[in-house]
Nucleic acid binder design. Structure first.
Lengths: 226, 226
DNA sequence: TATCCTTTAGTTGGATCCATTTTCGCTGAG
DNA sequence: CTCAGCGAAAATGGATCCAACTAAAGGATA
């Protein structure tokens, strides 16, 4: 079977985010089980996990259905990530940035500078930006002093449109994406500045605004990008 | 069986929050299954749910263990609730408070006034306050325009010390609790004022500060009350 | 003809069974 | 005496079986 490698949860997540399973669609355990070539047991386990993640919701008294997200939901999910990452940034600024942490963040910022230095984007840059963006954000969140914040962000990121690396919406329009990443890079640098100088409130607000980058563009692009 | 009524998830949650299952303790499926008098299947489902809720974490490659929470975790969890409820309050203020919503919130505030009017607390008041507090907070969160915020808060509230109704720590010391609830009531009234007048930033900040009530007391009380 | 009741089919929750993996303990050798 | 290797037992993941419940469909009666 081709599914041995990937978990049922991951497969279902992919099927949902790729639109194979439509929002509102009712999911039967047996149907999914035979579609994935496994027994009902792992499917039942996966349904519970995905329910907690927010991708599925109970359909009445019987079974689950793919949750559908409105524009307001997307907006809220991005704002939720913003306030949570803002909280992490503020805590980090308040507790002081160690030299090691500063170096780690500066490393990712340097990566961003190099990526944008040539003045335009190529397709491969998208993955590289995703990596450094994940590194920058992850470093801040993991340093907030408790896993609780990171867990809350991770749970929120299970909503496919809410994750930080969903900034890149449109590989076709690399010109616009370049300007977007320029702005994001600038915000990263300002955030590090605020963190270094212990400016908690500024770091928090910068991080919250930073989260909205993808959203504002998504709104302009007529609700694109899921 | 005495467990037919309550779900396995609920029973495990109770066992954990009551200290029957100690933090760091390894949980075997069979052990829990026969302790609860059920088969392994519902236990396996419950473990996945509780893992997502953050009460359990994977113990190496095999099985789960009760997650242990540091003081920093407690602090962070309360702050997370604060920023999320603050987000809900700000959104509500920005979108404007309908007359119906204002009436609902004023109703809970009136309940609070009546409860505190007599100048002291009796034991039964604790449950009443929990109900009105839940009503007030729930009304705001449910009106934020998207279930995403409420879901994030609900997930965070699965951490037993993070829920809004965990303000009441000490039934023995009703005098101190009375002063605490007086403060909380005042904050509720200020929050409604800010919501009514469309003061988004003020509503958010008041809500964030409001979340810290239990925490500040808990710190003074030497980490008591879970 | 419409509504209510009954029956039936399908779906979900719980229990048990089988296979795989991991860990612990025992034994033997250096 | 210690460490490594092997074996056994236990625990977990997956599959299947059984029971209970829900929902839908069909028939009967007003």
């Amino acid at each position: 079977m081709s599914n041995s490698g990937k978990s049922v949860v991951g497969q279902l997540r992919r099927l949902i985010s790729e639109g194979e399973l439509l929002p509102g669609q009712r999911l039967g355990e047996v149907a999914i089980a035979e579609q994935l070539g496994v027994s009902r047991t792992p499917v039942r386990l996966a349904f519970r996990t995905l329910e907690q993640e927010g991708l599925l919701q109970r359909a009445g008294k019987r079974g689950f259905q793919v949750r559908e997200f409105s524009d307001a939901d997307v907006h809220c999910a991005v704002e939720v990530r913003g306030v949570l990452e803002g909280l992490a940034a503020r805590r980090l600024a308040e507790q002081g940035l160690s030299p090691e942490l500063h170096a780690r963040l500066a490393h990712w910022i340097q990566k961003g500078r190099e990526l944008l230095a040539k003045g335009f984007l190529v397709e491969d840059d998208v993955a590289d930006w995703g990596e450094l963006n994940l590194g920058f954000h992850g470093t801040i969140v993991d340093s907030a002093g408790s896993d609780v914040v990171g867990d809350a962000i991770a749970r929120n990121n299970h909503l496919p449109f809410a994750a930080a690396d969903s900034i890149i919406l449109d590989k076709a329009c690399l010109d616009r994406e370049y300007r977007k990443l320029q702005l994001a890079q600038m915000q990263h640098e300002l955030i590090l500045q605020a963190l270094r100088d212990g400016e908690g409130a500024r770091a928090e607000m910068l991080m919250r605004e930073h989260a909205l980058i993808g959203l504002r563009y998504a709104e302009v692009l007529e609700g694109g990008g899921r």
